[in-house]
Computed example of a mutant assay.
Amino acid sequence: MSQKITTIGFDADDTLWQNEEFFRLTQDVFYDLLRDYADPDHLAERLLRSERKNLGQYGFGIKGFMLSMIETAIEVTDQKVPVSVIQTIIEAGQEMLSHPVHLLPHAREVVEALGQDFRLVLITKGDLLDQERKLAQSGLGEMFDAVEIVADKTPETYIRAFMRHGHGPDRAIMVGNSMKSDVVPAIEAGGWGIHVPAKFEWEVERAEAPVDHPRFRVMKDLGELEALVAQLV
């Protein structure tokens, strides 16, 4: 039976369009709001701790980030955080939720080109409404044969997605910026993991690269993807 690659999965945030940059900008606002209570490094540590703790309850996305900022603000001020600070945090989060989508270089061209020969599946995690909004605004939605918005990305996630929308993970490629969510679990599922590093990396998404695995590849940006896929097929 042929094991030719038939399906390509794409991550969305920081793979096809900017995302983490807006979180960083909002974090800077957060640090400035609480500068009288703690220095930025301490706030960053406390916020990251809250985010990690809350992932299981709030999931990934802007809304969980907002709640983690509010929780951190309450903690570092000993429950004395001004209402104006809470309001500003909420407004900053709302601005993030309405921010225009900025495609990353080569995103549209490579998705359009590869869609002529492969089945394309968008596999992204986060808040359902926000991810649907960004996909609609990106103009890429019609180019994908299927879209999976999931709570988290595990090997089982990729097995189910590539069995449902392709010929199984062993005949699929997953392309993404996160080593932890896009690359490692896709390889563990039996597929190819293609890492395209983003400008910013969230601490939670860090993982050791499987550099010795035969199904692991790295490229500097999406502009290299067509040539890389041609080598693999």
Rank of each mutant, 00 (worst) to 15 (best):
M1P: 08
K4V: 14
I5V: 12
G9H: 03
A12D: 08
T15R: 07
T15M: 06
W17E: 06
W17H: 07
N19T: 14
E20W: 07
E20M: 04
E21M: 11
F23C: 04
R24F: 14
L25D: 12
Q27V: 13
Y31Q: 11
Y31L: 13
Y37Q: 12
A38N: 08
D39I: 00
H42E: 15
H42Q: 14
A44S: 13
R46D: 07
K53Q: 14
N54Q: 10
N54P: 10
Y58I: 04
G59P: 00
G59E: 02
S68A: 08
I70A: 08
E71V: 06
A73N: 03
I74Y: 15
I74D: 15
T77D: 07
T77N: 06
T77Y: 06
D78Q: 15
K80N: 15
K80I: 12
V81S: 05
V81K: 01
P82Y: 12
V83C: 12
E91V: 05
E95Q: 14
L97N: 05
H99E: 13
P100E: 00
L103W: 05
P105I: 09
R108D: 09
R108I: 01
E109G: 06
V111G: 00
A113L: 11
G115W: 10
Q116N: 13
D117P: 00
F118N: 06
R119M: 13
V121I: 12
I123C: 05
I123M: 09
Q131R: 06
E132I: 04
G139F: 05
L140W: 04
E142F: 07
E142H: 12
D145P: 00
A146L: 04
E148N: 06
V150P: 01
D152T: 09
R164E: 09
R164N: 13
R164T: 14
G168P: 01
A172T: 02
V175Y: 02
K180P: 07
S181P: 01
S181H: 03
V183K: 05
P185W: 00
E188P: 02
A189L: 02
G190N: 02
G193H: 01
A198E: 03
V204D: 11
R206M: 09
A207Y: 01
A207W: 00
A207T: 04
E208H: 07
A209K: 15
D212C: 10
P214S: 09
F216A: 04
V218M: 15
V218G: 09
G223L: 08
E226M: 10
A227D: 13
L228S: 03
V229R: 06
V233W: 15
